[in-house]
């Protein structure tokens, strides 16, 4: 027999009365220092916490504007995903795709653009983590491979921004093969003596890290980004122990020798440009 008993039914929530007068998303809690930040202030500071420098994830459109000069154009925009395996888990893959396409207004998780960075012509490929976790299926793979092929054919540098949980399970083995496809395309770029800058952002894991993201002439990452092959949960489950602080973060990879530098978001473009100038402007002896 319980000590206490509810004798009255709980009052139903009154939907006719507004429960809160604070609009959604006006204040944001920083995941780095737990400070409460005014969201407009956060937007003004490139989504970096003004207190601790924590880098929030940013939208792909903002990412592109941050890196390219005004006047860029999208390439390969007519690629659309299909459902080659008729894959169905708790929901058919086709429906999942449609839901993301409707919500985000884009066909899949990557963009390819032609543009300039402080006047240097580049091909930029960028991944969209919001679209199915940035997972790499045939369209993402094809776009990044084509970005490399276009850069090779035009004789200009390639810049790729990664943000992805890895291969897209719903396209099965075809997703895995995108890793090989892109690597083969990057080999052509390399043979042509053209620069490839890989920018790793939070998070970059799985088959994306284990292919093009790690293959830049220069690999750079934003501070605090999760970067790894196996996801931290998989490792914890395998080893049945918790992981050390800072494991698989940008600074950790820099220390271990897999990144050339960790660059704060406001300096990213300038740093890429500095590297490209060294690679593309030949000094005269």
């Amino acid at each position: 027999m319980p000590w206490f008993k509810k004798t009255k039914k709980p009052k139903p929530l009154r939907s006719d009365r507004a429960r809160s007068t604070v609009p959604e998303g006006l204040w944001v809690k920083c995941q780095g220092c737990r400070e409460i930040i005014y969201s407009k202030e956060l937007a003004r500071s490139l989504k970096i916490c003004p207190k601790c420098g924590y880098h929030f994830r940013i939208e792909i459109e903002e990412r592109i504007r941050l890196l390219l000069d005004k006047g860029f154009a999208e390439l390969c925009s007519d690629l659309r995903p299909i459902d080659p395996l008729s894959f169905k888990d708790t929901k058919p893959y086709k429906d999942r795709l449609k839901a993301y396409q409707k919500r985000l207004g884009v066909p899949d998780a990557a963009f390819v653009l032609e543009g300039t960075m402080q006047g240097i012509p580049v091909i930029l490929a960028a991944m969209n983590y919001r679209f199915m976790g940035g997972s790499m299926g045939s369209v993402v793979g094809e776009k990044i491979a084509r970005a490399a092929e276009i850069a090779t054919d035009r004789g200009i540098p390639l810049v790729v921004v990664s943000a992805s949980g890895g291969a897209r399970m719903q396209e099965g083995i075809l997703s895995l093969m995108q890793m090989a496809k892109i690597s083969a395309a990057l080999n052509r770029l390399r043979q042509a003596g053209l620069p490839y800058i890989s920018i790793l952002t939070d998070p970059t894991t799985g088959g994306v890290t284990a292919s093009f993201a790690m293959l830049g002439d220069i690999n750079l990452a934003e501070p605090g980004a999760l970067i790894g092959f196996a996801g931290p949960r998989v490792i914890e489950q395998t080893l049945r122990e918790s992981l050390p602080e800072g494991f698989q973060r940008s600074e950790f990879l820099l220390e271990k020798g897999f990144l050339d530098m960790v660059v704060p978001r406001p300096e990213l473009k300038a740093m890429v440009v500095r590297c490209l100038r060294h690679f593309t402007v030949r000094s005269i002896a």
Partner: peptide, 26 residues
Amino acid sequence: GAYPGIGAEERGQAEAIARNLIEMAA
């Protein structure tokens, strides 16, 4: 699959796989 361990990550499991993909292509 490739081993998902702390040491493997520290020594660059992803880089080692990626390197083989491009070098096999070449």
